[in-house]
Design a protein around this nucleic acid. Structure first.
Lengths: 338, 338
DNA sequence: AACGTTATTGAAAACGTTATCATACATTAT
DNA sequence: ATAATGTATGATAACGTTTTCAATAACGTT
């Protein structure tokens, strides 16, 4: 394999014009004679010239690159965000640099620094939000446009695109209570330091209290979004003397863990136990039995975040806003409906 | 927000030394006096200096960036590959630029060109492999290390990491035949232009023929990896006069579509129909009923591809190789076992 | 004939790094 | 004592672009 690294200079030499002229041809500026243009183009073809973005970026002070920092690409939820952001920005001529934080605070901080060092023009950040001060400092120091998704960051002057976690949770739990009269409703939760867990829990509690039900602490199990922990949580719930009538999972990943226990123990749904879950991923419709879930409205969070970010990059100084994505119940028979 | 753009020059001025000296401090070279180092470091801190990779890259002729080109990040299979590649290369100090091709040939070609223009140091490519000549030309012209994953590319002199599609398929279908005596086995396939579909089909056919079963063309439905098409395919299979006894899905995404029809029509598994699928994604264990599947061995394809790519970047000139990832049956009760 | 446009090109500088070379001083070896 | 080495710094050039700026030619206008 031969390294091809033709530069403007090479093209200029071959076509007998100056470097800036070649540059002008490449960038399709006006005021180039047809004759020169033709010569240059054929030289470009012959040498297989491709502009070098490293040099271009340096000169233009533009990288046309967006950083996207998320806990886990292979998670469906984040994967969809990445997909949407990539689609949006690719059309605008931007590249995407991906940073996977594996839910690690330090890695997240390093990722932000790296993104800054690479001079990305904007950042989409799904933070685990434990290090708000540090992040705040980083962002303020470098004045780089940033949009936060999923977990809320308690920083002013920042755009955020979030789910309606309180309301969504409320809908799910209220459905269990009002429609089916369940009282003993357990909750398999994400880590409570994250705003999305915290708010989902708030929605759960509110639904309970609004219906004069007592919130039982033993029914709240933190499973850190993990299948294995959700499996254990479900086991604990069922080994306890007063088993719950219903389980509410804060995301579909934990639903899998939960269902594994249920299938293993041959617990009957919905006869012995009702289940509802946040997030209407595709597989939720085909598990045993299809699970009632909460579907975020079809507009992708990632797309909205990308739009907002793009406007900031273009220089918008609109007020910073928090967008909440609305969601709807998708009723299936895991809760007894039907 | 103030733009922070301190450069080496600014740091040099503030600390009263020359630019190269600051550079040396930043890069932790030896032969710097403690006194100078201290001054420089404090200036760096004060100015919030971060090295600018655009300039660095230009000078070093290194971008420390890998391009990863895949059809769809939000697909679990590709998401996992991206995750593995990101993890591997992040540790080595590389960034990942993500290109999503949406299964579009033109986008794929453009992605490769873009990656080259950005001077990535290597590419991981999950191709849809329709444009082999073009890709071949691109790769040969620029001599950039590249590793192909998932779909085979008929190009010599290229490393590839693929599944054992023939063998895996064979295992699944053979299980249906030998263990359970099914004869009428349908197959829901991906597009046959893609090597992975083609090879999976070959495995299916071989298993049938080795067991003296006739391959019935009506039982082979191409659903292009899509849920909706798989749903339709299943409907067609069941509206046909001679219904199949078993269905083999070439991936788990199509399994979802297939199951949607089955659930809708209340078809009993495994009494009325057996199912097996390629790919043991997490949810496959909790669908109705848990589905027998083919699990690729635990080492991630992405990691292997990343390792190979890294060695090429480091200059390895070992023979080009095709690695096949082995896989095992995970037997559940969708086929009648248990 | 002198003048302003408009079209087309090139020379030189700049973007922020790092590499090369030269210089200066300090230390050690002969 | 002198030469050889090691330590510490700076001037300058270079990476490949694009952006002034100036120069030239062509052209119509007064």
């Amino acid at each position: 394999m031969k390294k091809n690294n033709a530069t403007l200079k090479d093209v200029a030499k071959l076509s007998g014009v100056s470097v800036p002229t070649v540059s002008r041809v490449v960038n399709e500026e006006k005021y180039i004679s047809d004759e020169v243009k033709e010569k240059v183009l054929s030289a470009i073809k012959e040498l297989n010239y491709t502009p070098q973005w490293t040099a271009r970026s340096l000169r233009l002070k533009r990288t046309l690159t967006i950083g996207i920092i998320i806990p886990n690409v292979s998670d469906y939820f984040f994967g969809s965000i990445v997909l949407a952001v990539e689609n949006y920005f690719r059309k605008k001529g931007y590249d995407i640099i991906l940073f996977n934080t594996s839910n690690d605070e330090d890695i997240e901080e390093r990722a932000i620094k790296l993104a800054i060092s690479k001079r990305v023009e904007g950042i989409i950040l799904a933070t685990i939000s434990k290090s708000e001060k540090k992040i705040s400092a980083l962002i303020n120091n470098f004045g780089i446009p940033i949009v936060v998704v999923d977990n809320k960051l308690n920083i002013e002057n920042i755009d955020q695109v979030l789910s309606d976690d309180v309301g969504g949770s409320y809908k799910l739990v209220e459905h269990l209570i009002k429609k089916h009269g369940y009282k003993d409703i357990a909750c398999i939760s994400g880590p409570l330091e994250e705003s999305s867990s915290f708010e989902k829990l708030a929605g759960y509690k509110k639904a309970m209290e609004d219906n004069e039900l007592k919130v039982n602490k033993e029914y709240i199990k933190v499973a850190y979004w993990k299948k294995s922990k959700a499996f254990e949580a479900t086991r604990e719930l069922f080994e306890n003397s007063n088993k719950p009538e219903a389980i509410y999972c804060m995301n579909a990943n934990m639903l899998i863990g939960c269902l594994r226990y249920i299938i293993k123990k041959k617990i009957k749904i919905p006869e012995d136990l009702a289940i509802v879950t946040f997030d209407d991923y595709d597989f939720v419709s085909v598990v045993y039995p299809p699970v009632t879930s909460l579907k975020r409205i079809d507009i992708e969070m990632g797309t909205i975040a990308a739009e907002i970010l793009f406007e900031r990059i273009e220089g918008s100084d609109a007020d910073y806003k928090i967008v909440r994505i609305d969601s709807d119940l998708v009723i299936r028979n895991s809760c007894g409906c039907n």
